[in-house]
Nucleic acid binder design. Structure first.
Length: 190
DNA sequence: TACGTGATCACG
DNA sequence: GTGATCACGTAA
């Protein structure tokens, strides 16, 4: 079933980032459904330098300042669309970057979008998964309880021991805040 | 390790 | 207006 919007209003963005692991991201773009299990996330709080919201509201990060439960999508390096989930209440501009999925449904469609034939690692990075899922800036600000993009809970809850914590990547500009262990990953089962 | 790519933002 | 910068991916 769909995750209730109240889940995204939680005040602790790292908690939401951890609890998103194991949940399902689903998009329905032009009648095509694609879905994948979230296996890697990063938390961004408006109070630390890694966040786009740290220096206040701009045209780009505007949707982060509204209530949680909407998509924040922006273009990175002129090439990649990045998909985030806004969390916390209005004016508390927190967000979770979805960094990796395990493909579940609509793999054919994903392959077509990414223009490859190998499903291996097709959703293994933030830019790639957005492309595979058909997510772009048109979805910026869209609520996650509609019928275009949403999150489902299939009852999977990871134990703390199944969650690998790490420093976030690609944010050297954040200085000491780049060291926060706010990257969460599902441990590889073996 | 190096760089493409284009929107964005902080200047003025 | 303009220029530096960037929450990546891929090739080498």
């Amino acid at each position: 079933m769909k995750v209730d919007q109240s889940f995204f209003l939680h005040r602790n963005v790292t908690t939401v980032a951890k609890q998103l692991l194991g949940k399902i991201l689903v998009t329905k773009i032009g009648r095509k459904i694609t879905a994948g299990v979230i296996v890697e996330t990063e938390a961004y709080s408006h109070r630390e330098k890694g966040s786009h919201a740290f220096k206040g509201m701009t045209k780009r990060n505007e949707v982060m300042f509204g209530d949680g439960g909407v998509a924040y999508v922006y273009l990175c390096y002129g090439v990649h669309e990045m998909f985030n989930i806004v969390t916390n209440k209005k004016s508390k501009a927190d967000a979770v970057l979805i960094r990796a999925l395990e493909p579940l449904n609509g793999i054919e469609m994903m392959l077509e979008r990414v223009k490859t034939t190998s499903p291996k690692r097709i959703t293994s990075g933030p830019g790639k998964l957005a492309k595979a899922m058909g997510i772009d800036r048109k979805l910026n600000g869209k609520k996650l309880d509609g019928d275009i993009i949403w999150i489902e809970d299939h009852g999977i809850k990871l134990k703390p021991s199944e969650i690998v914590k790490d420093a976030r990547v690609g944010i050297d500009y954040a200085g000491e805040d780049a060291l926060l262990p706010w990257r969460f990953k599902k441990a590889v089962s073996r």
